[in-house]
Design a binder for these strands. Sequence first.
DNA 1: CAGGCGAATTAGGGAACCCTAAATATGATA
DNA 2: TATCATATTTAGGGTTCCCTAATTCGCCTG
Lengths: 228, 228
Amino acid sequence: MTTRRANPNTESVDNYLKAIFTLGGPEGVRVTSTALAERLGVAPASVTNMLQKLASSPRSPVEYERHRGVRLSAAGKRRALEIVRHHRLLEAFLYEVLDYPIEEIHDEAERLEHFISERFEERIDAKLGRPKFDPHGHHIPALNGRMPKQISKPLSDVKKDGEFVVDSVSDHDAPLLKLLEAHGIAPGARLEVRSRSPEEFALRVGSHSKALLFPRALAGAVRLRPAD
Amino acid sequence: MTTRRANPNTESVDNYLKAIFTLGGPEGVRVTSTALAERLGVAPASVTNMLQKLASSPRSPVEYERHRGVRLSAAGKRRALEIVRHHRLLEAFLYEVLDYPIEEIHDEAERLEHFISERFEERIDAKLGRPKFDPHGHHIPALNGRMPKQISKPLSDVKKDGEFVVDSVSDHDAPLLKLLEAHGIAPGARLEVRSRSPEEFALRVGSHSKALLFPRALAGAVRLRPAD
DNA sequence: CAGGCGAATTAGGGAACCCTAAATATGATA
DNA sequence: TATCATATTTAGGGTTCCCTAATTCGCCTG
C-alpha cells in the first residue's frame, strides 16, 4: 500500500500555468502545445502529457481539448497571476533593495518565485511600499489578482514621429536590457521618435541631445505610451 | 538516444549533505543511515540508495562504506558549509531586513537556501554588514568555508549554579523558540542559573528580577558560555 | 474530396527520489 | 561462539516529469 500523494510538483506546474498565461494574453486565447513546448524548452509530447494530467485533476487549472490547445480556467488564471505577482515583486526587490543590476533580476526572480511564502511576499511588498510596477515597467498584479490592462504599444509599431514615454521594456533578453539601460531607455523616460527607416529608428532619449539610432529588430522590446 | 544528464537534484542532495554535516559534527564523525533517515524524514532504505549514488559519483561528496556509515569528503564538507552559510545568512536577512518573527525564519531559510545564487548571497551578506552570527547565535561560515568552533555548552549540562551568557538557541522547534524569546532568552542575554532540580532550572534572565522555572527537558535547546 | 503536411498525441522509456517488505550484516550477549 | 535484536541493504514498486519515435489528426490545397 502506498500513501497516495496527489502531489504535483508545483514548480513545473506553475511554469506551465505561467507560460499559458503569458502566451494566451489577457484575454485568455487558446495556446498550442507547440508554442508551450517552445516557451518551456520541452518536447511537445511532454506538454501533451502535462496538459492531460492537469486537465484531469480536480479543480483543474486548465481547459484542454485534444488538438485544440489549452487555456486557463479561473483557478489557473488566479494561480498564474500569483506567480506573476511573486515574480515582479521579487524583481523589484532585487533591484531596489539588493541593488541587483537590471539584467540579472529576471533570472533570479524566475527561480525564486516558486519558493517564497506568502509571508515573504507580504514583507517585500511592504518593504517596497506596495509598488505597482516592476523595474521593467510591468504592472504587478494585486493580491486579489487584479491587474490593469497594458495600454502601451511597442516602438516597432510606431508609425509616425512624436513624443512618447517609455512604458516598459522586455525582461527576457539580459544583454539587450543592459544596453537599453545604458542608453537611458527605462520605464518613465521621455523618448522622442525623430525619424524612422526600414532599418532603424532615430531616437532622442530623456534630455540627451544627441540622437540614438535604434535597430528596428530590437524595437519590439520597448513599449511606449504617448507623452502626456 | 537520450541526452545524458548527470543531473542530481541539488535540493535533495544538499539536504543529505547538510544532514551528514550536522550529525557528524565538526570532526566529521561517521553518521549512520538510520540517523540520517530520521533527520531527513525518509526511510532508511532511501538513505542507502542515495548514499550509494553519491558515493559512486565522480568527485563524490561522501565517503561511504556499507554498514559503516558515511562521512563527508572534503568536497562534500565544502558544499555543506556553503548551504549552512546560505541558511544562516538567509535567517539573518529574514529577521533583520524583512522583520520576520524569529520562529519563522528557519523554515523559510530551509526552503530558500537551495535556490539563491551566489550573487544573492553576496548581496544579503553586504546588506547585513557581513554578519558573523545568525539570529539564533550560530556562526555563519565564511565564504572560504571557515567556521570557528562552538565553545558553548547546553544548559542541560550545567552542573552548578552561576552566571552565563546565552550563546545560542536551537532553531528547529518554532514554538519553543517563540517561548524562549518571550522570556528574553536570546543570544547575548545574561542568564543566571540559581538552582537546579531533576525537573527544572531556576533561572534569572537579563535584568529581570523574578526567577524563571525552566524545564530540564527543554534545556538542551539553550547553549551557554561563562559570563565574562 | 483526396492527398499531404505539420501539429499533436500515443507508446515506450529513462532518471531522480521515495516507499514497503524481505533479506542479511553487525555487534552484543548469553 | 551461537544467537538475536537491531541496523542496514537488497528487491521490487510508485510518482513526476522529461524524451524519442511512431502514429494520428486537422486542415489546406490541388
